[in-house]
Nucleic acid binder design. Structure first.
Length: 917
RNA sequence: GCUCGGAUGGUGGAAUGGUAGACACGCAAGACUUAAAAUCUUGUGACCAUUACGGUUGUGCGGGUUCAAGUCCCGCUCCGAGUACCA
């Protein structure tokens, strides 16, 4: 019987469905293990061969854990809301729900072919009302919560209302937009609307006027992580800064906890570092400056020690302070400058490194020297960070230095021996000079000393600042979760939780209304609350993906997001596999969202993802043919130098091992119907290059084609064999024959000349050794995510057992179990061939026996002065004296000793003998 | 600019400080075939030698630690990823 993977894979996939092999329940008699993939956005292009890489790795791990006796939760779903479906809807009028549904169907077919062990009964889709009910529910809870900085947790807002009505703001430390102080009497005399406005300052989900990334092309605002270098991540359209009233989530309140939590989770250092940079904690001081105008303002600095080097102040053009600090005679110039900077898109502003600015006309007063410091306005200061104003120390900050040089402002060096004639001295090292009470201190001593003095003189206070901004949560789009919000006298109120889900209405077009309202403004007869109008924005993409891992625990529960029973059993994700591209988006929002739910008592773990592994990207490997210019003649790779040629991308699917299938090429494109070829050795050899996998490069490899040609097991093994999981690497179908041959070799251990040839005799010593070496290696490799080397270990073992002509039942049984996580179909088949009734998924992972791994003799590399020369074998109990004697007496040694007597002989047991001459 | 990775044959990649190049692709030779494919066997870093045994050299570059360095330390070069007027 031959290895007929098509028949085998179809049969066992059906068997797994029929027997509900992958369905899991909360079985408290077993330890749980939760393995999660980042769920995909179902795009119209379908899966290419790069997408399943992480899924295969997580599937191997889940299956391995299950074989070890764990109760494994391994679910899958779809991140179904997103821009591409909506853009497609705008162009074609096709409802995004239909596009999405079709794409999901396609994804599911593709995934099913690969043989994953997902419990599909737990599937979630973010666009499904029964799912987004809980996204809306979490939003309502955020709206009705505030964040207490003293206890570092979210609390229900009614508790705050009670405190405010009794004590006012006295003694409170709350996360807010603007610090406020008022008494209980003041609070109690305010109207409902005024009270609501005040509460908005404290809510975790709040409506705020903030500078947002506005993308005119997409007609929506975007979050910081959706923008890179002034362009939208989706589509690459320019993004500009605009002030808008938007829903925001107070992620910044959780900054310290998000930072601290990183120490408790098992993620890679680089990913943690990326999050630390994104959170951007910096310790420093807020300092208070009075001005010549009488008005005062605050700045933030991390270098309070450089206070004596301040020679001017700078405000961001968007800063509220600009108006009050501009003198009448400078008014025109300032206005002109602000208009000019506003016109620049974010991208232009970043690209434009030239220095610009304008003098406001007023002066700040130095808190220690009383000196007058001119106040400038420049776009190198950002409104969104700190207070939107800085003290400029040109000697020790490169940006201030460039500005000072450009406008010819004074530069005062503060560190002994530093040379500021060409550039600023930014390093925090050296001895302070020109700095009053700080003189003689090192910079490291001066920083805290300066802050202490600032606090003592009451000109400022110690402050920790975070770069992490609140998340902007509104999108002016159709295809997203509607907000469960209605407006009464211009103030937002949430729907009652019993009214959820608020379903997405139908619209006639997926474009903004004529009056510029979001697409939901087109919804006719949308349900309304007592005649009040509903919120027309929708939630962003990350809303639905922020708590999906909790919903998988209890996906059909209509009463709660997740029951206490399910949550307390599954707790959090033990292993999360996905790409690094979510480092500052999804992985921050999810942690925030989960911490909020933790504060609410909904989630019992503060961190959602205990261990996280990033799989690398799979790039494309493009193939080229070389057309001789002006002809329809193509020349093979190694002859192309003799001609003037144009390289042309050719579909990698009609190229095998870089050899072009000429017939397929002629049929590929009518243009090449009559193409002629200059061959080498009768073949046309193509050139190649590593590029992004994309349609336009004709280098997309579809997993379906690989499965059709080689089978799912070969695909799974080959994806792992390609290289280390975490590394980016190009897909190269060349080489897949190797793993396919390996599977056939395994098959041939069972079948000899078409007959099943498994025997029941005692396994030999060599067979046991080969098998147990494999068990040990594979167990170790899976735990360390070194799947590529475990595939190699399988190949070595198969080669050894083939050479030993092994057909032993006990050996083959354990081999089959080891293979099951990697190649489940063939393993299931062979497992049943061996006479087992249950699924191989429920077998028991074998444990290696060190007894079998014992060596009779160990090869010792015999080295002279550290250079290996030859190999001798010694048994474990050979004494050092005997080894020395044997080495020196060996005829090969004479050449290296050259008659001298060795100075020293180092013997490392089982490894090496080094003779130092 | 800053942060974090990485650099090993023709290719993908192995290697707890201890025989560098496992395993696989490719290539070459051979076996089986009328032939091809498939399969199997052998060889395969480079250079030198070849009757055999063998020798020299070799993990981006330059130093260092060590009996011993691809691996550890210091200084570079190049490549990749993330981030960026964050005060």
């Amino acid at each position: 019987m031959d290895y007929n993977f098509r028949e085998i894979e179809k049969r066992w996939q059906q068997y797994w469905i029929d027997h509900q092999i992958y369905k899991v329940t909360e079985d408290r008699s077993k330890s749980k293990f939760y393995v999660l993939d980042m769920f995909p956005y179902p795009s119209g292009a379908g899966l290419h061969v790069g997408h399943p890489l992480g899924y295969i790795a997580s599937d191997i791990f889940s299956r391995y854990k299950r074989l070890q006796g764990f109760n494994v939760l391994h679910p899958m779903g779809y991140d179904a809301y997103g821009l591409p479906a909506e853009q497609y809807a705008i162009q074609t009028g096709q409802h995004p729900a239909i596009t999405t549904e079709n794409n999901i169907k396609r994804y599911r077919e593709q995934l099913d072919k690969i043989g994953f062990s997902y419990d599909w009964s737990r599937e979630v889709r973010t666009c499904d009302p029964s799912y987004y009910k809980w996204t809306q529910w979490a939003f309502i809870r955020m709206f009705h919560s505030y964040y207490c900085n003293q206890t570092q947790q979210a609390r229900p807002i009614h508790e705050l209302i009670e405190v405010l009505s009794k004590k006012g703001t006295a003694g409170l430390d709350l996360a807010c937009n603007e610090p406020m102080t008022f008494t209980a009497e003041e609070w109690n005399t305010k109207s409902e609307k005024e009270q609501q406005e005040i509460l908005m300052n404290y809510r975790i989900a709040y409506l705020g006027d903030t500078m947002v990334n506005w993308c005119p092309e997409l007609g929506t605002v975007l979050a910081n992580d959706e923008v890179s270098e002034g362009l939208s991540i989706r589509g690459g359209y320019p993004v500009e800064q605009k002030k808008m009233r938007q829903w925001c989530l107070r992620v910044s309140a959780y900054a310290q906890r998000l930072l601290d939590g990183l120490d408790k989770i098992d993620w890679t250092d680089s990913l943690k570092e990326t999050q630390r940079n994104w959170i951007g904690r910096s310790e420093g001081a807020v300092m208070h400056f009075n001005t010549s105008q009488g008005m005062a303002f605050d700045i933030f600095t991390t270098r309070a020690d450089t206070i004596f080097g301040v020679t001017f102040m700078v405000l961001a053009p968007e800063s509220e302070l600009v108006k009050g600090l501009t003198t009448d005679e400078q008014c025109g110039a300032v206005e002109e400058y602000i208009i000019k900077t506003k016109k620049k898109t974010e991208r232009e502003r970043i690209a434009d490194k030239s220095v610009s600015g304008v003098f406001s006309g007023s002066y700040a007063i130095h808190p220690f020297t009383g000196e007058q410091l001119p106040i400038w306005i420049s776009d190198y200061v950002l409104a969104g960070y700190g207070t939107g104003a800085i003290m400029a120390v040109p000697a020790h900050d490169s940006r201030d230095y460039a500005f000072a040089r450009h406008f010819d402002l004074p530069i005062i060096p503060l560190i002994e021996g530093c040379d500021v004639s060409q550039e600023s001295y930014d390093a925090k090292e050296g001895i302070m000079i020109n700095s009053g009470f700080l003189n003689g201190m090192t910079v490291k001593e001066a920083i805290p000393a300066a802050i202490n003095e600032v606090e003592r003189c009451k000109v400022g206070y110690r402050k920790i600042n975070f770069r992490l901004r609140d998340a902007i949560f509104s999108r002016q789009r159709y295809w997203g979760e509607p907000f469960p919000v209605y407006y009464k006298e211009g103030m937002p109120y949430t729907l009652d939780e019993s009214e959820l889900p608020l379903e997405l209405p139908e619209v006639d077009k997926y474009l903004p209304t004529e009056t510029g309202e979001p697409p939901l403004g087109r919804a006719a007869n949308w349900q309304t609350k007592e005649g009040y109008s509903l919120e027309l924005n929708t939630m962003p993409g990350f809303a639905g993906s922020s708590a999906y891992y909790l919903r998988y625990m209890d996906p059909h529960n209509d009463d709660v997001l997740v029951s206490e029973k399910a949550d307390s059993y599954w707790r959090n994700v033990d292993l999360y596999i996905g790409g690094t591209e979510h480092a500052t988006g999804h992985l921050v929002y999810s942690r925030f969202w989960n911490k909020f739910l933790f504060d609410l008592g909904v989630s019992c773990e503060e961190e959602p993802f205990k261990k996280l592994v990033n799989q690398g990207m799979i790039q494309g490997r493009s193939n080229f043919v070389y057309r001789i210019k002006g002809t329809n003649q193509f020349v093979s790779l190694n002859l192309k130098e003799q001609y003037d040629v144009t390289p042309i991308h050719v579909d990698v699917n009609i190229v095998h091992n870089d050899i072009l299938n000429i017939e397929a090429f002629r049929n590929w494109n009518p243009e090449y119907k009559s193409a002629e070829f200059i061959l080498e050795d009768g073949k046309y050899i193509c050139g190649w290059a590593i590029e992004k996998m994309s349609k336009s490069m004709f280098n997309v490899v579809n997993p379906d084609d690989i499965v059709e040609k080689y089978g799912a097991d070969t695909l799974r093994l080959y994806e792992m064999f390609l290289g280390p999981l975490e590394q980016s690497k190009p897909w190269d179908t060349n080489g897949i024959d190797g793993v396919h041959r390996f599977l056939r070799r395994i098959w041939n251990l069972f079948y000899k000349e078409g007959e099943l040839g498994v025997t029941d005799n005692e396994p030999s010593k060599e067979e046991l050794k080969s098998l147990h070496k494999l068990i040990k290696k594979v167990s170790f490799d899976i735990e360390h995510f070194s799947f590529n080397t475990s595939v190699s270990a399988f190949m070595i073992c198969a080669n050894e057992l083939t050479a030993l002509k092994c057909s032993n039942r006990t050996i083959l049984t354990d081999l089959t179990i080891c293979l099951a996580p990697f190649a489940p179909h063939i393993a299931e088949e062979l497992w049943h061939v061996l006479g087992n009734e249950i699924s191989v998924c429920d077998a028991k992972w074998p444990i290696w026996n060190e007894e079998y791994l014992k060596e009779d003799a160990f090869p010792y590399a015999i080295s002279f002065n550290g250079k290996s020369r030859f190999v001798l074998e010694f048994s474990e109990d050979t004494t050092n004296e005997e080894i020395e004697k044997a080495v020196l007496a060996h005829p090969n040694s004479q050449k290296w000793i050259e008659g001298k007597s060795p100075k020293k002989i180092i013997i490392v047991p089982k490894k090496i003998v080094n003779v130092v001459i």
